[in-house]
Amino acid sequence: MAVQVVFRNRFLPYLLVAPQAAVTLVFFFWPAAQGMRQSLLREDAFGLSTEFVGLDNYVEALTDPRYLDTFLRSVAMSALVAFLSMSTALLLAAMADRAVRGGRAYRTLLIWPYAVAPALAGVLWFLMFNPTIGVVGVGLNRMGIAWNPYLDGAQAFVLVTVAASWKQVSYNFVFFLAGLQAIPAALIEAAAIDGASPFRRFWTIVFPLLAPTSFFLLVVNVVYAFFETFAVIHATTQGGPGGATETLVYKVFNDGFIGLDLGGSAAQSAVLMAIVAALTVAQFRLLDRKAGA
C-alpha cells in the first residue's frame, strides 16, 4: 500500500486527519465506551443512584426468553429477506443480461426502488396490506382469508419482511448484473456449441461463477435486514402486535428509549456490536477472496 513519493511534513498529516479523527472519537468511540460502561451499571428507577453490577445486565438480557424469541425472529427475518430479494434479483438480472431489446429501460425501471427510504417502503406496503382499504388486504379478505396485520402477528411479520425485501431487490440486481457481465461470453458460447441448453448453461456455468457475488450479497443482506428494517418496523407495526415484529435492534431502542432500562439496552447493544463485527470481518474475508480470484 506504499506509494513511493511521500511528502515530508511533521504537522500537516495530523491536520488533515483531524476532522475525521475528531468526529470518530466524539461520536463513535466515546459513545461506544459510554455504552460499554452503562452495560455494567444499573440505575434505579429515578436515576438517583447507580451501582456496578458486573455482567448482570448481560446475563439478564441473554437469559430472558423474550430475548431468545427476538433473536430467532431477527434471524428468520434476515434469512427470508435475503432469500426473497436475492432470488428475485438473480432471476431479473439473468433475464436483463446480454442483448435484450430495451435493456437500458428495463435496468432503469428495476433499480429506482433502491432510492426509496426503508421507512417509506414500509408505509407503502402498510397501505397495500391494510385489511379495509389496501388492494392486497381487501383481496385476501374477499378470497376468504382472514387478513389483518393489526391483529395477527404472523401477518405483521409478513408485512415487514415483504416491504424490506421489495426495497432490497434493486441493490442485489445491480450486483448480480455486474457479476453476470463479468463472465466471459466465450464460456457461454463454448457450452452452447457443445449443445448445452440455456437452462443447463445457467446452472452449470453461470451460477457457480456467481458464487463470490452471492456470498458477498448474503452478508450485506443480512446486515441490511438486521439494521435497516428498524425503520420499516417503527414506521408501521411498531414491533407489534404483541411483539411479533420486534427485532434485536428494535428491542435495543425500545428498552433504552421507551423502557428507560439503560443498562439492559446497553448490554444488548454490545451483543449487537459483536454481531456486526463478525459480519464485517466475514465481508472483508470474502472481498479478499474476490479480489484474489
Binding site: 500500500m1 506509494v3 513519493v5 511521500v6 511528502f7 515530508r8 511534513n9 511533521r10 500537516l12 498529516p13 495530523y14 488533515l16 486527519v17 475525521q20 479523527a21 470518530t24 472519537l25 461520536f27 463513535f28 468511540f29 466515546w30 459513545p31 461506544a32 459510554q34 455504552g35 452503562q38 439494521f227 428498524f230 435492534v249 435495543v252 431502542f253 433504552g256 428509549f257 439503560l262 439496552s265 446497553a266 447493544s269 449487537l272 456490536m273 456486526v276 463485527a277 464485517t280
Partner: peptide, 30 residues
C-alpha cells in the same frame, strides 16, 4: 497515502472500526 507519520496505522484502524459501530448500535449513548 501520501504521508508517513507515527500514528498513521492507528488512525487507519480507528476509521476501519467505525464500520462496526452503526448508529443503531450506539444509539442511546450517542
Amino acid at each position: 497515502v501520501y504521508f508517513r507519520f507515527p500514528l498513521r496505522k492507528t488512525i487507519f484502524w480507528m476509521i476501519f472500526l467505525t464500520l462496526m459501530l452503526p448508529v443503531e448500535v450506539r444509539i442511546v449513548p450517542t
